[in-house]
Design a binder for these strands. Structure first.
Lengths: 129, 129
DNA sequence: CTGAATCCCTGCCGATACTG
DNA sequence: CAGTATCGGCAGGGATTCAG
């Protein structure tokens, strides 16, 4: 399926890594890092928007009209810290800021795809419950 | 609506699906469904544990000693609702409950793998920050 | 043994108002 | 234009206690 080139593994399941044995949500755990990057309402929608190209603050607001200015400001800031986004100020007036995905950010595409596929599969064939 | 076959996709990124155009975190969005299943602290660690086989309440407690009884009870309950887990009571005394991944649950393995890979890649090559 | 009920504390998110 | 400051409501989750 859309199993990208994220590296194949000998066996299914989780990798053979010392961090795979943590018994608490350590911030150094790769899974925690990713979930932390995706954390927060609206976050995945902001990423989806930017997967289609650079966006300014106003363009994001237009694409996601329900977001308050605060969240519209917080999400890109958080994502920039997480290394997902690049923030470029365009000199002059009025101020313009362009948000662009970094190479890391672009690699979130397959991750969101994996999330999408699982949710779609569950919807298509709900469990016994 | 979810007319899709989750098969191959013409282009990278997100699928061509009406739900891909929501402008708010709709609960019917597959991505939201998956994130909702993984939602909550400790959740992914519980799933990781169960990816290695069925576990009882006590076995989970032993594997994840830091969890309070409440969370240790809430997480499997939530995951059962989400169709990830199967809960089987063993008759007799003392009461024993076995938690097992459903077929949907087992399919979370690759999803966690994708999350792991992204986090590991970011750690390996941190951004400009 | 396997939880459910309760209490409290914290952090998220929405709304509104203000600034370089 | 692109945010920051502030306030308040509410849900998540830890600790403790109780129940089948």
């Amino acid at each position: 399926m859309t199993h990208q080139t994220v590296g194949h593994r000998a066996r299914p399941g989780l990798p053979d890594d010392p961090l795979a044995k943590v018994t608490e949500p350590a911030p150094s755990c790769p899974v925690e890092i990713t979930l932390s990057a995706l954390h927060g309402r609206w976050t995945t929608l902001v990423i989806r928007e930017l997967l289609q190209g650079a966006r300014t603050f106003t363009e994001l607001r237009h694409a996601l009209p329900a977001l308050s200015d605060k969240v519209l400001s917080d999400r890109p800031a958080h994502l920039t810290e997480a290394g997902v986004l690049d923030r470029r100020r365009q000199p002059g007036w009025p101020p313009r800021v362009h948000y662009t995905l970094t190479s890391h950010g672009r690699r979130l595409g397959p991750v969101l795809q994996a999330l999408w596929d699982w949710g779609a599969a569950v919807t298509a064939s709900p469990p016994e419950s």
